[in-house]
């Protein structure tokens, strides 16, 4: 799917960011082009989730320096909803429960705000129900979920499927999926992974943030990045992930140390 003429979707340069006055990202560099699937791996606390939150514009995270360009445009000044509308999608590791807010209503308002940006007509309740029922099939979800409050009382797997359903509805340009595989059993993992595969388009891209190799057995990444201490310290192809699974993270530490010594 990757060709030399592919356009760059996301370009991150020397990104430093902090939360609660503590610097977490110490200079991240990353370029994602159309049609690519990237995997970012790393230990807890290496900065993976922080990176995803910073891209999506979470107000608690502060960018200290560096840049994030989306299709060549600086997005750092954009509100989270503006980023979502231009096609940046964050699949949350822990989707929040919102009691009292209807899932169906939420999905419709979100979908329409993205459609408006794409200059598509807004959908009324009936049109939207048709669309959402279509998309439900991708994640094998029961329509009964639409009647409930956003994520309220959903199991871990149901929450993640609800995330992928949103991805299907919003048709993002770039999807950043933060530990979408965590807490899923084999069946749920398969459903979620096949959903992601079916939704990938030649003109869109995906970043998978994950701990383990197992999601990557289902979705083949074009690039694998390893993060440690707020930086991407190693980039390779899918073999790197397999290597990592075999040898554990210590082998990265060793690598890093050697690099340091070489300096």
């Amino acid at each position: 799917m990757i060709s030399s003429t592919s356009e760059t979707i996301l370009s991150i340069e020397d990104l430093h960011a902090s939360v609660e006055d503590q610097e977490i990202l110490h200079g991240v560099n990353l370029v994602v082009k159309e049609g690519e699937i990237h995997a970012i791996m790393g230990r807890n606390g290496s900065g993976k989730s922080t990176l995803s939150k910073v891209i999506a514009g979470h107000p608690s995270y502060k960018v200290l320096s560096g840049s994030i360009l989306f299709k060549g445009k600086d997005i750092l000044e954009l509100e989270p909803e503006e980023r979502a509308r231009i096609g940046i999608f964050l699949g949350f590791q822990y989707p929040v429960e919102i009691p009292g807010v209807s899932n169906l209503e939420f999905l419709r308002v979100a979908t329409n705000s993205r459609r408006k940006e794409l200059l598509k007509s807004e959908l009324d309740t009936f049109e939207f129900e048709d669309l959402v029922k279509e998309k439900l099939k991708i994640v094998e979800m029961d329509p009964a979920f639409l009647e409930r409050s956003v994520n309220e009382g959903f199991s871990g797997g149901e929450k993640k499927r609800n995330e992928i359903l949103q991805m299907a509805l919003l048709e993002p340009v770039i999807s950043i999926l933060d530990e979408t595989d965590s807490g899923l059993d084999i069946d749920a993992l398969r459903i979620v992974a096949s959903g992601i595969n079916r939704l990938s388009q030649p003109n869109s891209a995906t970043i998978l943030i994950t701990h383990y190799q197992r999601l990557l057995n289902e979705i083949t990444p074009d690039f694998v990045h390893i993060m440690a201490d707020g930086k991407i310290i190693k980039t390779g192809n899918k073999e790197l992930a397999i290597d990592l699974e075999k040898k554990g993270y210590e082998f990265i530490d060793k690598n890093a140390k050697e690099k340091e010594m070489a300096k």
Binding site: P59, E81, A84, F92, I98, A110, R114
Partner: peptide
Amino acid sequence: FYLQSRGI
């Protein structure tokens, strides 16, 4: 943030 991140 969750709602905003969906474009609302």
